[in-house]
């Protein structure tokens, strides 16, 4: 086969993927952008036409928006703090010799495979229920009064649920990174009198630097988009206390039928995600040449 025909075959092989992503992702995104400048309400079809920036103004000045932004950031920050710190500790722990280590690791990573709606409902009912939940029972055993998790601390509750789901991901990545650590170097440091803390600070943590970056970037992208956990537990409430940006946009579009405002919100969400994505893509790109 000639080089030219080979090249043509290669282009042809790539075309369906590119076409599908353009139709499925780029066209909707462009449409969202267009809709964000239009008056468009499914409940009020008479209203139409160019809206200028008024949808953005409506969305940005809505008090719910400010709260949704704060909640989105708290959700990402809270989950990252728990999973990065916890993931490093668990990674170090399960890198130590122990009996049944493989089995214990399987138990640790299991929460990651539980679908979001199931984990949220199980936590909401069987763990966090102030009357019959396990947490209430533990609180009682400790002589404390049970906490009304979802009504009094809705955002914290969701942070805990999401952190439980993502801790295995962080642990798995840190474990993988730790296994590539040079054990001879560690041994040499030990011989030179470096204590466990020295080895952690000067050898292990620097080695994990790249893995930490990866965990932060990937988790941020997924946690910026958290939706199902809120949908089945608090429905964003009480008030807007646990509404994040995706949930606010969903409510705007599919429950209040304001397509224009929802689209403006979606564009804002995309811009926010892109700020993170730029760094993530650069990081992945560095591996391409390797």
């Amino acid at each position: 086969m000639s080089g030219y025909r080979m090249k043509r075959a290669a282009r042809l092989a790539l075309a369906p993927s590119v076409a599908l992503l353009i139709v499925g992702m780029i066209v909707p995104l462009a449409t969202t952008l267009w809709l964000s400048f239009r008056y468009y309400n499914l409940m009020n079809p008479a209203l139409g036409g160019f809206a200028g920036l008024s949808n953005y103004e409506f969305f940005l000045t809505d008090p719910a928006f400010a709260q949704a932004i704060v909640n989105t950031i708290l959700l990402v920050g809270g989950v990252l703090a728990i999973t990065v710190a916890g993931g490093i500790l668990l990674g170090l722990l399960f890198d130590q010799p122990m009996w049944g280590r493989g089995m214990a690791r399987l138990l640790v990573i299991a929460p990651f495979f539980v679908m979001p709606t199931v984990s949220a409902l199980v936590w909401k009912n069987m763990l966090m229920h102030p009357g019959y939940g396990i947490f209430a029972w533990v609180a009682m055993k400790l002589g404390l009064s049970p906490v009304e998790w979802l009504s009094n601390h809705p955002l914290l509750s969701i942070i805990l649920i999401v952190a439980w789901q993502w801790l295995p991901f962080a642990t798995l990545i840190f474990l993988t990174a730790l296994q590539s650590l040079d054990h001879e170097q560690q041994e040499a440091a030990r011989m030179d009198g470096a204590g466990p803390l020295d080895r952690l600070v000067y050898i292990i943590l620097p080695h994990l630097g790249r893995a930490i970056t990866v965990v932060i970037l990937m988790e941020t992208i997924f946690i910026l988009a958290i939706f199902a956990e809120i949908f089945v537990t608090t429905s964003g409430g009480p008030g807007y206390a646990s509404t994040n940006l995706p949930y606010l946009i969903y409510v705007q579009a599919l429950m209040q039928f304001d397509v224009g405002a929802a689209s403006a919100g979606a564009i804002i969400a995309v811009v926010l995600a892109n700020i993170v994505a730029i760094f993530a893509i650069r990081l992945a790109g560095r591996n391409l040449t390797a």
Binding site: M25, L29, P246, I249, L254, A262, A269, N274
Partner: peptide
């Protein structure tokens, strides 16, 4: 495209 939040395409 994977990094784009799905909510950005929801309405269309």
């Amino acid at each position: 495209t994977k990094m784009m939040p799905a909510v950005g395409a929801l309405v269309p």
